[in-house]
Amino acid sequence: MTRRRLITAASAATVMTLGGVGYAAHRRSANPYYRGPISDHFDGVRFHAPEQPPDKNFSDLARWRMTAKTEPWPASAPSPFPADIPPERVDGLRVVLIGHASYLFQVAGRNILVDPVFAKRASPVRFAGPKRVNPPGIAYEKLPPIDVVLITHNHYDHLDGPTMARLWQEHQPLIVAPLGNDAILRGYDETMNVETRDWGESVDLGGGTTVHLTPANHWSARGLNDRRMALWCAFVLTTPRGVHYHVGDTGLGQGTIFRDIRARFGPPRLATLPIGAYEPRWFMQPQHMNPADAVEALRLLDAEQALGHHWGTFKLTDEGIERPAEALTAALGAAGLRQEVFLPLRPGQVWEG
């Protein structure tokens, strides 16, 4: 089988999805999303993380697809938690997993969506790509008034363009995203107002809450020729209810990004961390933590509580649907930590603190 046929065979789950697992060509071209000054993480065309590994190529993807030992997922895996109906406002801190990496954070009277994906597939097309195996943990129609939407990066399992256009039309939220993602979002609604920021910059969300954009060990792409042309990030929310650190996608790397968060903001009250889409490790390790990595991140952060996401809704990689939760249990035990300090959330599951 030729390389091109190998790529075509894998396109629904890898190349087209680009949900942190796919291949994107590295042809140098003008950046269609962002033009700005060269910096320590932008070369004038592409962004890069402090510990950016070499980009994967056709040979790497072909090797993965030819040697994959993938565990099958069920066609349907409903959450044991009923769909949540959130209150209109919360004075404290209330967190609900919508599914995969999509959350509703309610804190100090503000309603904040992060990476809202309500689509049936994490894909640029409706007929192919990873299909969700459980419904959203909050039905779209049951959302409270949305004040803010935060976008960590542009992969299709994190940036759902049609959902973002609908949210904008119906809620007019403040939208905050890393550099370059405004151009992508306005492709779905040209009237959309997006506040873009670089790593190290912040936006006041009102009500005593500020969001800070921080680095993550990841990458971005929406197609074959735009790899790393829009920035990606993690978020720190400083709120009247404490510090909340949220990572959409990242590799552990040398742990530097987590040490830096603790040094700058102190130990977080809450850390929401990815625990899934990690096999095979030789391919995924630079960009996706496994549960053992996530437990190490928790240790480096010295966070009071952690919640795990990025698992159990879209099959993006080789591990079975329950493997992340099982591996998290084992990793916590090996670290001598109580199981309740790091919960693998399921759609509709609520955490309050």
Rank of each mutant, 00 (worst) to 15 (best):
P215F: 04
G253V: 08
H171R: 09
W282V: 06
Q349A: 11
P86R: 11
R46Y: 03
R27W: 12
L93S: 08
V125I: 02
D182Q: 10
R262H: 13
G200K: 09
V107F: 01
P82E: 07
F81D: 05
S123A: 00
W351Q: 04
E141S: 13
G208A: 08
G19L: 01
A327Y: 04
H246A: 09
H155E: 06
H212Y: 14
A230Q: 06
P291G: 14
Y34R: 01
Y103C: 00
A292D: 10
A234I: 07
D293P: 11
V247C: 10
P291C: 13
W232V: 03
L328E: 04
L316K: 08
Q106V: 01
P268R: 05
Q285W: 11
E170A: 12
E190R: 15
D55F: 13
R264Y: 06
A335K: 12
E340A: 12
P86H: 12
L213D: 04
L343N: 02
R338D: 15
A234W: 04
L298W: 07
L174P: 01
G207C: 01
Q349E: 12
P87W: 00
H218T: 15
Q169R: 15
I275M: 06
T239L: 00
P86Q: 11
L167D: 04
E201F: 04
F265N: 03
L143H: 10
G36I: 05
V107L: 04
E326W: 06
G109L: 03
E279G: 05
Q305T: 13
